[in-house]
């Protein structure tokens, strides 16, 4: 018997690590990996609650999250490649065209 809160704590920790990584990392690829980390944290919550509530819907959601993550990774990495081609850098602090 493991309390569900342990899983949730682990989930929250992973998510927090993802957020922190997103905030402190400068390499754009690492930022994407931080996002994956956050998604994994959320997935763990889904599975834990699915087990707790005795329903399989959580598993399905995790599956969809994975698909979306895969699509996002594909597009995101393509964007990274094209940004690198034009800006010659992977440092997000130098990609500051959002400011006019």
């Amino acid at each position: 018997m493991i309390p569900i809160s342990y899983y949730l704590l682990l989930s929250a920790f992973l998510f927090a690590c993802g957020v922190t990584g997103f905030l402190i990392k400068r390499n754009i690829i690492t930022l994407f990996m931080s996002i994956e980390l956050m998604l994994n944290g959320v997935n763990l919550s889904f599975i834990a609650f699915a087990t707790r509530l005795q329903t399989l819907d959580g598993h399905i959601f995790v599956f969809f999250v994975m698909v979306v993550a895969a699509a996002e990774a594909a597009v995101g990495l393509a964007i990274i490649i094209s940004v690198y081609r034009t800006r010659e850098t992977l440092n997000v602090d130098r990609v500051n065209l959002l400011k006019l």
Binding site: F64, V67, V68, A71, E72, V75, L77, A78, I81, S82
Partner: peptide, 17 residues
């Protein structure tokens, strides 16, 4: 719908890269 999403993602990746 997810399959369509993945398809679009593939095309987007190809176009972008």
């Amino acid at each position: 719908v997810t399959s369509i999403l993945v398809l679009i993602a593939i095309m987007g990746a190809v176009v972008l890269a």
